[in-house]
């Protein structure tokens, strides 16, 4: 196994172990996602707009907001006792640190999304049977992109006085392209449209992932080093 990958897995394993012990961020994000769905469920007028028409937007707004809560924890754990200094002191390439943090964040956000999806079905009475593999695929594609950007911004925000406020302000504009793409693909999947109608959006999501994972890997060192 390449050294960088081994180090990245060590960092991710540490984050996951710490989170499984405290469960703070994961539980908060899941409860938050459930509350967002409840609010959307009661705020909509079912006689004015069909649940199926609203469902893709609601799903992705919920995913995005819950991801924000989960991403906030990525570097707040490093702030305790100056633990981030321990990471930066070690002979670990910054790219490996980023990859480790990204993998841990993908695990957290993926878990939150996996719990949110059945709640979404419950509240909005949407039949996902046929569309489920596609929904899982587009969720993975969109999540990699915005979690990648969120990982860098979380590292940046944690050095500021109001980290919890800074992260949404920094991240939300960058979440717009993948959310738009994911909503468009999800709507077509739920409507049973052919793959050819989604290809353009899927390409956009894939391009976003490639561009931002690359940029974030390169920029991470400049963000975390004083």
């Amino acid at each position: 196994m390449p050294e960088s990958l081994r180090l990245a897995l060590a960092v991710a394993g540490k984050d996951i172990r710490a989170e499984l012990r405290s469960r703070t961020a994961l539980l908060s994000a899941v409860v938050f996602a459930a509350l967002v769905l409840v609010v959307f469920n009661f705020a909509r007028d079912p006689t004015a707009i069909a649940a199926a028409d609203l469902a893709p937007s609601v799903l992705w707004v919920t995913f995005a907001l819950a991801a924000m809560v989960a991403l906030n924890r990525a570097f707040t754990v490093e702030r305790e006792h100056g633990a981030i200094d321990g990471l930066l002191l070690a002979p670990v390439p910054r790219g490996a640190l980023f990859l480790g943090k990204l993998l841990a964040n993908l695990a957290f956000v993926g878990t939150v999304e996996a719990v949110t999806l059945p709640l979404f079905v419950l509240f909005f009475n949407v039949d996902l049977t046929a569309a489920l593999p596609g929904i899982i695929g587009v969720t993975a594609l969109a999540t990699v992109g915005f979690v990648s950007v969120g990982t860098v911004f979380s590292a940046m925000a944690v050095r500021t006085r109001f980290a919890e406020l800074m992260l949404p302000v920094l991240l939300l504009p960058f979440m717009v392209p993948p959310i738009i793409g994911a909503v468009q693909v999800t709507a077509r999947l739920l409507a049973g449209r052919p793959l050819s109608e989604m290809l353009g959006w899927l390409r956009l999501l894939a391009l976003y992932d490639v561009v931002f994972v690359t940029l974030c890997t390169m920029a991470f060192g400049a963000v975390v080093d004083e």
Binding site: E3, L7, A10, K14, R17, A18, E19, R21, S22, V77, E80, H81, G82, A83, D85, G86, L87, L89, A90, P91, V92
Partner: peptide, 22 residues
Amino acid sequence: HSLLYDDLTLLENLAFAARLYG
């Protein structure tokens, strides 16, 4: 600062640091 994580035990903390140093 101690550079230690509150949610890990001392052994886990130091083993993680040892991993970082190969």
